[in-house]
Write a protein that binds this DNA or RNA. Structure first.
Lengths: 220, 220
DNA sequence: GTCTATAAATTGATAGAC
DNA sequence: GTCTATCAATTTATAGAC
C-alpha cells in the first residue's frame, strides 16, 4: 500500500527531504485533510517547529509535493516516445505498454487520486497537474502523430490531435476507471496490459491508419 | 458550485432527509475528512445529538449518502438506452449525448470525485459505486450492442463487451480527464458535446459497424 | 427524538530555550 | 535550524434534561 515518493529523491537538504517524503506518503495514502501536521512531523522524525521552519503551513507543504510530482511527470514522459523508424503497429504497442505501465504505478495513481480529490481546494495546482501530466502527454503524442502523418502512415485528413486523443482513450478503456476506484490488482493487470495495448493499436490503425497500412479486417 | 443532492429527495423522515441533504452537499464540496459533524449538524439545522440519533457516526452517514447515490445511478441509466428501431448512427449519437450530459452534471462529478478520493478508506463502497455506475452502464450497453449485432448492424466477430467499452471510452475522451480535475466549464462544454458524440459515433461505426453500414471514408 | 452542555482528544500553529 | 512545551480552536462523540 505504501507508495514511496521517489520523485523527491533529489531534494538536497536532508531534513527537508525527510519531511517531503513523509508528507507525500501520508497525503497519497490518506488524502489532504486527513493528514495532520503532527503526523507529518512524527513520520519525518522532526519536530513541528522544524516542520514550520521549512514550510509556512500545510498548504505550502502540499503544493511543494505536487509541484515536484509535476516536474517528475514532465521529465518522464519523454521516454514514452520512440522514433518513427519502426513499423507503426509495433511502435504503437510499445508506446501504449510503456504508458499503461507508468500510469498504473501505485505512486502515479495515488498522486492522481489526491489531485482529483483536492482540485476544488487547489485549482491552480489542479491546472498545473493536468498540464504537466495528461496535457503534456497528449501534446507530445500529437507531435509524434503529426510525424507519422507526414510520413504517410496515417490518413491525411485526420487532425493529429484527434488521433492522439483517441489512441490514449482507447488505451485507458475501462481499466482506468477501475484503477481510479482502487479496484485494479497491479499484478493481475500486468498480465492483461499487452493484449490491451495490442487491441488499442489495432483499433487505432483501423480508425486512422493509412488505407494501405490498415490491417485487412477483423482484429477481435 | 453547490450541488444539491436531489437523489435523496425520497427519504421519508424530515430531519433525516435534512441531515442527509446537508451532509451530501458538504461531502461533495469539501471531501470526507474536511467535513465535521458539527458542520453537518449546523447546516442541517439540527443538534449533534439528533445527528447521532440517526447515524452512528461519520462513516455511517457517508455510506448512507453514497449508497443512495448508487441506487439513483442504477435507476437513471435505463433511460440512456433507446430501442433498436432507428438508424444505428442516430441511436449512438443520442445515446452518447444523453450519457455525456448525465456524466457532466455537477452532482455526478462531485459524487465521482468524492468516491475516488475515499476509495482507499471505503473499499466496499468504492466497489458498490463502480458496480452501480460505470459497470452497470457498460453492462447495459453490452446487452444493447449484442442486440445490434444480432440484427446484423455490427461486425459479427466483435465481442459486444469490447464494443461497449470502446464506445464509452471514445465518448469520454480528454473531456473527462479535464472534468475530474475541475477544469471543464459546464456551459462551454455543453456546446461541444454534440460534435463529440458525433465523432465518437463515427469512429465507433468505422471500428465496429457492419461493413455495409460503415461510412464510406473520412469522418474528420 | 430532540435539545444544551460538555467531555476527551486532536487540530494548525507558535514561544522561547539552545 | 532545531527542539520541548504549549496555545486556542476544533474534532468526534456522549450525558442528562425535556
Amino acid at each position: 500500500m505504501s507508495a514511496t515518493a521517489e520523485f523527491l529523491s533529489e531534494v538536497p537538504n536532508l531534513k527537508r527531504r525527510a519531511i517531503l517524503l513523509a508528507a507525500a506518503e501520508l497525503f497519497m495514502e490518506e488524502g489532504y485533510a486527513a493528514v495532520s501536521m503532527d503526523a507529518v512531523a512524527k513520520a519525518a522524525g522532526v519536530s513541528k517547529a522544524t516542520l514550520y521552519a521549512h514550510f509556512s503551513g500545510k498548504e505550502a507543504l502540499f503544493e511543494a509535493i505536487v509541484s515536484a510530482g509535476c516536474e517528475s511527470m514532465r521529465r518522464r514522459a519523454d521516454g514514452f516516445l520512440g522514433g518513427h523508424d519502426r513499423p507503426l503497429r509495433d511502435a504503437l504497442v510499445e508506446l501504449g505498454l510503456h504508458w499503461l505501465r507508468f500510469m498504473l504505478r501505485p505512486q502515479v495513481r495515488a498522486l492522481h487520486r489526491v489531485m482529483v480529490a483536492e482540485a476544488a481546494r487547489f485549482p491552480a495546482l489542479a491546472r498545473a497537474f493536468y498540464a504537466a501530466g495528461p496535457q503534456a502527454m497528449q501534446g507530445w503524442l500529437t507531435g509524434w502523430m503529426a510525424g507519422e502523418s507526414a510520413r504517410g502512415h496515417l490518413r491525411p485528413d485526420v487532425p493529429p490531435a484527434q488521433a492522439a486523443e483517441h489512441f490514449l482513450c482507447l488505451l485507458r478503456g475501462d481499466l482506468f476507471v477501475r484503477a481510479t476506484f482502487g479496484l485494479v490488482d497491479e499484478e493481475m493487470a500486468a498480465a492483461e496490459l499487452p493484449s490491451i495495448a495490442e487491441r488499442a493499436a489495432d483499433a487505432f490503425l483501423l480508425l486512422y491508419g493509412a488505407p494501405a497500412l490498415a490491417p485487412a479486417d477483423g482484429f477481435a
